[in-house]
Design a protein around this nucleic acid. Structure first.
Length: 100
DNA sequence: AGATTGACTGCAT
DNA sequence: CATGCAGCCAATC
């Protein structure tokens, strides 16, 4: 089982932008959103895959609220210039990738 | 081999 | 805008 294709697609998300599980799934063409999420969870710690740029279709971080991972992801995105609204959501029309 | 679960999504209510 | 529900595929038990 190799998530290489999924990871390769995630690597193409430019800095300061975010993409969704569904978009990545469409991009690789051989996975459904759930599998993309599964691939993210299976990611080794020191990988160069920008996993934090992947959020759900509603523009929100999909990790459990208050969890360690959730906070880390939000911080990484903010460091790249991605802005969150008061509800902790990203405007996909502005930061989503691919655009449109 | 069958049941359960998960970093999901889209449509209906 | 929030909930509920079915469909989805792979990993785990």
């Amino acid at each position: 089982m190799s998530y290489d294709r999924i990871w390769a697609a995630v690597k193409q998300v430019p800095r300061g932008r975010v993409s969704t599980y569904g978009r990545i799934a469409e991009l690789v063409g051989a996975a459904t959103p759930r599998v993309v999420g599964y691939a993210m969870a299976a990611l080794p710690e020191g990988s160069d895959v920008p996993w934090h740029r992947i959020i759900n279709a509603r523009g929100e971080i999909s990790l459990p609220r208050g969890g360690h991972g959730h906070r880390r992801q939000k911080r990484l995105l903010q460091e790249e210039g991605v802005r969150f609204d008061r509800q902790g959501r990203v405007d996909l029309d502005e930061f989503g990738w691919p655009p449109g």
